[in-house]
């Protein structure tokens, strides 16, 4: 069932001022045919986690733990082997479509690259397939768009191109890192609808990352809530929304702007400095339910029925 499993992943960055603890000991499973959400503030380590899957972390990153794709370990494999997987079996789309495509190459050159590389298509077959895929992601006049350069297309259009490029090789996993953050709200919904549709049509698993819990609740099957490099809570969408157990998740849900009332409920305080994380729970400084255990460096992981998992000292049961 599980197509990707991450175990005890730790990511640190060596910088001039010390060690940045970006991801601290997280584990998660991605199942066939599901959309798994990861939600968290910026700096929570959600992007670094997926970049680690793709082998795209910065050079000063120190990684430990294990990332298994179809039971094949991805951490530490050779670049040649990794290049056979990324862009082929695991594809990724990025936050800012305006800069994610090479401004000096036209759409066609960039779009057919994965097919030529991974599927050994001839150029004309690859172009035909690319046009078919552009049609699928609802880009009109696809044949002419192929000759365009990125600066001639809009952000929403470019994100569709990115999605088409990711889908061309029919990957088993699609990773979408904040795919709608840089786009207009109307375009945002269209792109999210498209991602939702892909799950059915392509029979693939998706990891969707967003800082916007609203986006996550709309699209995902299961949700991971990340904070300062730790997974605080994980459950299916229903349980996260109705039965959230972790104080951080509750605060996040409460902070969603609400049409009925004008009052906003921000989470007070700032995220901890990743250079010197507190012992135990990283949320302790901002937590309303903080008690003695939390400040003593205790940080308990618990699993409930229905796959509901929390990383908190509070005994909710």
């Amino acid at each position: 069932m599980s197509i990707l499993s991450i175990n005890d992943l730790v990511i640190k960055f060596a910088v001039e001022d010390g060690i940045v603890h970006a991801v601290n000991n997280i584990s998660l499973e991605l199942n066939q045919n599901e959309i798994l959400g990861i939600v968290g503030e910026s700096g929570s380590g959600k992007s670094q986690t997926v970049l680690a899957i793709m082998g795209l972390l910065a050079n000063n990153a120190l990684i430990s733990g294990s990332i298994k794709f179809n039971n094949q370990e991805l951490l530490g494999i050779s670049k040649a082997k990794l290049n056979k997987i990324r862009g082929n079996e695991i594809a990724m789309i990025f936050q800012d479509p305006m800069t994610a495509l090479n401004p000096y190459l036209n759409i066609q050159t960039q779009l057919i690259e994965p097919l030529l590389l991974h599927r050994c298509y001839t150029k004309s077959d690859a172009i035909a397939e690319a046009i078919r895929m552009l049609d699928f992601v609802k880009i009109h006049d696809a044949r002419n768009k192929l000759k365009c350069y990125p600066h001639q297309l809009s952000g929403g259009m470019l994100q569709r191109v990115m999605i088409a490029m990711a889908l061309l090789t029919k990957p088993k996993i699609l990773i979408a890192d904040e795919p709608t953050t840089a786009l207009d709200v109307t375009v945002q919904t269209e792109i999210l609808d498209l991602i939702n549709q892909l799950k059915v049509e392509f029979n693939m698993a998706t990891i969707l990352i967003s800082h916007d819990i609203g986006v996550i609740l709309n699209v995902c099957d299961r949700v991971n809530v990340m904070y300062a490099g730790s997974i605080m809570e994980r459950a299916n969408v229903h349980d996260i929304f109705y039965k959230a157990k972790h104080p951080y998740t509750k605060a996040l849900l409460k902070s969603i702007p609400n049409q009925e009332s004008d009052i906003l409920y921000p989470i007070s305080g700032e995220p901890p400095n990743l250079l010197k994380l507190p012992n135990g729970c990283p949320f302790q400084e901002r937590c309303e339910n903080k008690f003695s255990k939390c400040t003593q460096g205790i940080f308990i992981k618990r699993e409930f029925s229905n796959g509901h998992y929390i990383n908190c000292n509070l005994d909710e049961s």
């Binding site: 960055f13 910088v15 001039e16 001022d17 940045v20 700096g43 910065a58 400095n273 250079l275």
Partner: peptide
């Protein structure tokens, strides 16, 4: 990549 300036933290 996260770049942290000493001046912000100290």
């Amino acid at each position: 990549m996260v770049k942290l300036d000493k001046l912000i933290t100290d």
